[in-house]
């Protein structure tokens, strides 16, 4: 038996002597169920969220913010062009943001395009129904998984980096290896590497709690019930901005995550998230 470092001590198929691949039990059931739940809920949250953003495509800092106040980010259209403005910098985004062509060929002046939103034609009431329904599954999934990670020691054993791993030299070395698309092989692939640990901890401990709590902070009834939420995030409009930034970082994480899965061997990686069994890449 070999400690896989992923909770269950099991070498399901240790053919090292016969020269075959080493298969380890990598992802436990809780991880797999939560992962695939998130694949569905996160896409629905992101896409219905963009419809809600489209209702008022401006972001502010502070307690209040409306059309007469300074928006630090704005997506709009002017002179038949679509644009994204962040601070004083404006980028022409015609065709993608602000002004784009619908599936039926019509020109639409709206922030995010139909292919990125739920529903695909603007409907704030429907988007809010999708967003606020799946928010329950999303938020309780995060809460349950975080609790399970602590109780099962998944967090401390597999996710939190060790002191040795967060040494700058070690991190730089891993970054350099990743940049050359050299991923851990053999025994080194038994555990998450430090870049994985930092990403997963950043998502589980920072981005996901932030996106849920800023979502709650936008609720006027929650502001009455839990006024400290406004103090944490610096106001409802700041919370709305942080909600959007956290969602953007989650999209970035998904893009990098999927790219890494594809580069590291998609069949083995995806299979491991379905069956739990992961074949250590040969040295």
């Amino acid at each position: 038996m070999t400690d896989t470092g992923f909770g269950v001590d099991a070498n399901l198929q240790d053919d090292a002597k016969s020269g075959g691949p080493t298969v380890v039990y990598r992802h436990r059931l809780a991880t797999r169920v939560w992962h695939w739940t998130n694949v569905v809920t996160l896409f629905i949250m992101l896409m219905s969220g963009l419809t809600i953003f489209n209702a008022h495509p401006r972001l502010y800092w502070g307690q209040y913010g409306a059309n007469n106040d300074h928006a630090w980010l704005q997506i709009g259209s002017a002179d038949n062009r679509g644009y994204l403005r962040v601070g004083d910098t404006t980028v022409d985004t015609t065709g993608v943001l602000g002004r784009w062509t619908s599936a039926s060929g019509n020109t639409v002046n709206r922030a995010f395009p139909y292919w990125a939103t739920i529903p695909s034609s603007y409907n704030l009431a429907v988007a809010r129904h999708w967003h606020l329904f799946f928010a329950w599954i999303f938020a309780f999934g995060i809460l349950l998984y975080a609790l399970w990670s602590v109780v099962s020691r998944h967090l401390t054993r597999d996710l939190l980096p060790t002191r040795k791993e967060i040494a700058p030299a070690h991190i730089l070395h891993d970054v350099a290896q990743h940049a050359r698309l050299r991923f851990p092989k053999g025994e080194a692939a038994r555990h998450y590497n430090v870049l994985q640990k930092l990403s997963y901890c950043g998502v589980l401990l920072v981005l996901l709690p932030a996106v849920v709590l800023t979502g709650l902070t936008m609720s006027p009834t929650m502001n009455a019930a839990w006024p400290f939420l406004l103090d944490i995030f610096g106001g409802r409009q700041s919370a709305r901005s942080i909600h959007f930034i956290a969602a953007t970082l989650l999209v970035l994480f998904i893009l990098v995550h999927v790219a890494m899965v594809v580069l590291a061997g998609p069949i083995n990686e995806i299979r491991s998230m379905i069956t739990g069994r992961y074949r250590l890449p040969k040295e």
């Binding site: 953003f53 209702a55 008022h56 209040y64 913010g65 409306a66 409802r236 409009q237």
Partner: peptide, 9 residues
């Protein structure tokens, strides 16, 4: 604070 369903306050 007045909060519009569209997002502004």
């Amino acid at each position: 604070r007045h909060d519009c369903v569209e997002g502004w306050s």
